[in-house]
Amino acid sequence: MTETAVTAGAPFTAERRRARHRAAWRRRRLVLMLMSPWIVGFCVFFGYPLVMSVYLSFTHYDLLSSPKWIGWANYKYLFTQDPQVGPAVRNTLWLILIMVPLQVLFAFGVATMVARAKRGVGFFRTVFYLPALAPPVAATMAFVYLLNPATGPVNVILGHLGINGPLWFQSPQWSKPSLTLLSIWGIGNLMIIFLAAILDAPQQLYESAELDGAGPIQRMRWVTLPTISPVILFSVVISVIAAMQYFTQAYVAANIASGQASQAGDQTVNNLGYPEGSTLFYPVLLYQHGFRFFNMGYASALSVLLLIVAFTVTVLIIRNSRRWVHYAGAVK
């Protein structure tokens, strides 16, 4: 930019024009070089799969013989016949409508408490953040053990208190709440984001609110919430996107809880969604069709649908947020 500023006032001579031309060309080459990883990456790992997904969703393809065009049949089966799609969508909605709000609420509550603490903020922050670091596979295995209905520490302790503990991961009513507990344990990232936002809120606002006689609840309503609303929006969006992709915990929990590693029996344990399909979330269904049955065509139809829904939901949340999110300054 400094170059252009210098050259702008100078008269145009042929030589100058050539020099400018060369400089612009060099600059373009530089940009192209810097951008090249993304250009290739976007085309190969984003554009190509997107187009391919749409194409494959109109075919029957099992990876053994070449794709066979079958028109709308996959979509017809998806929307009218597949008995698993309905429950899978409902299970995923459960995550979005119950697990995500609980996660956000809990993270917010903990962040508020840590922010209020006069001592040991660092210590508490570490304690609440640590579980978020635990690899999901390890954390899930630990929770299945902790919540073992017969011998798990949780039910043993409940038993000592005279409570007959639930079946947790073994019962269709309790499996999703059990996964929710697991996800609440891992709210560390959200908590830290909230904590930073709360500590960032201008202190004068609180003081003037206090002088005006606002109690803690009113201060929360009129000072804290408005100032951190962009952060809440951000958390909700990433949590919803994460909920739509919820896979690892569901897969591992069902696998371990169903437990029967059938070594010499005749069943390939079809334990996805155990118990009774209650943990069969949409991505798990996609995995089942794509990578267990290798119905690549049908799995592609499922992913196209997910793509459309995910995009719509994200756009809707961001659109509607204008109404209640308060942007203090330019965020981006």
Binding site: N148, Q170, G259, A261, S262, Q263
Partner: peptide
């Protein structure tokens, strides 16, 4: 049902 479910959950691995 619940008793059996708990019994199973507390049983060791089949193999």
């Amino acid at each position: 049902y619940k008793n059996l479910q708990k019994f199973d959950a507390g049983a060791a691995d089949e193999f």
